[in-house]
Amino acid sequence: MEFKTSNIQRLSNPTAYWFSVAGFVALMLFCIGAVYYATYAVDYQWRWFKVPKYFVYHETIKLYADGNGEVSKIVRKDKMADLVIKYDDAGEETYTVPKDSYSDTLNEGDFITAGDLLSEYPGGLKAGLISVGLWITLKISMVATILGILLGIIGGVARVSNTPVLKWSAITYVEIIRGSPLLVQIMIAYFVLGTTVNKILMMHGFAKLNSEWYGIAALAVFTGAYVVEIVRAGIESIHPGQVEAARSAGMTYFQCMYHIILPQALKTILPPLAGQFINLIKDSSLLGMISIRELTKATREGITTSLQTFELWILCAILYLLMTFTLSMFVQYLERRTATK
């Protein structure tokens, strides 16, 4: 009796497997070579050695005179020195600096003008531009994800409710948010909502909210609208008989959702949730339009000052890939955990 072999079985033998691996390696080498040739064609000079300073660098502290005046006295100690400056308008000011950090030509009785360099010395390690942008992106994405989940779950439960005020409000929210561009929503959140809220806060003696909070709000509301539909689909995938059984046992609608339906729906909604939150991390790059120094804006600023276009954009893409890949692996771990329960 002759058995037929499928194409998948033919590819499962070791020879075909290693040919497939070789093909993948060749494809990656081709892509890398294409990028290198493109840079060679435009006569680009790679400067990867300058990239580490965008993560961390040694800060150089420079101390300038605040106004016109004279050096009243210089008190030298073991490793430090006190520069006592007598300003014409502001009185005396004492600056404690390392002993070897000020110029030998700076002596007692010398006249100085505003902006003169008094001392220059190395400081400690400081986070670079890319590190700051990466941290802001992670912080904003994390907070917006949590708020988006809360909005999505509340909206999803309201979406399948039979109460008109809940169901119609959820439908209106979803249709308005999904029907308009995220960039427009960010602008409205910052310039319209932000201006109004900050004026009200200042009228009552409170400090203004940072622009990051309006960016987080815009991302959370935008993501929440998509999570509403994901949660709705997950809830509707559960057999309606379970809702009827829970209600018959004396549970309220929200108790039924919390204890019976949502835990089961979690297995269904995890994969699309992962895709939505991966998009949220990438969508955070739009917050640079309202002067939030997230990763993409930090990269643009670095390119403007250094002209390292290829290095910094490639680095930016790798960092986004690391964030999204980590989130994807975490969600797959959650899927495996929930599948075993």
Results as ranks from 00 to 15, higher is better:
Met1Cys: 13
Ser6Trp: 01
Thr15Leu: 12
Tyr17His: 11
Trp18Glu: 02
Phe19Arg: 13
Gly23Tyr: 00
Leu27Lys: 08
Leu29Asn: 01
Cys31Ile: 15
Ala34Asn: 14
Thr39Ala: 15
Tyr44Phe: 07
Pro52Ile: 05
Glu59Arg: 14
Ala65Asp: 04
Val71Glu: 01
Ser72His: 12
Arg76Cys: 03
Lys77Trp: 03
Ile85Gly: 00
Ile85Pro: 02
Asp88Arg: 09
Tyr95Val: 08
Asp100Ile: 10
Ser101Thr: 03
Leu106Ile: 14
Asp110Ser: 09
Ile112Glu: 04
Ile130Ser: 03
Ile130Ala: 01
Ile130Lys: 05
Trp135Met: 07
Ile136Glu: 14
Met142Ser: 15
Ile146Ala: 12
Gly148Cys: 01
Gly148Leu: 02
Ile153Val: 15
Ile153Asn: 03
Arg159Gln: 09
Asn162Gly: 10
Asn198Ser: 04
Leu201Glu: 07
His204Lys: 13
Gly205Met: 07
Lys208His: 06
Asn210Asp: 15
Gly215Arg: 05
Tyr226Phe: 15
Val227Leu: 10
Ile230His: 01
Ile238Arg: 04
Pro240Arg: 13
Val243Gly: 07
Ala245Phe: 05
Ala249Trp: 10
Tyr258Ser: 14
Gln276Arg: 10
Asn279Asp: 08
Asn279Gly: 11
Ser284Cys: 04
Leu286Gly: 00
Met289Ser: 15
Leu295Asp: 02
Thr299Tyr: 06
Thr304Val: 06
Leu312Ile: 08
Leu315Ser: 06
Leu321His: 03
Leu334Pro: 03
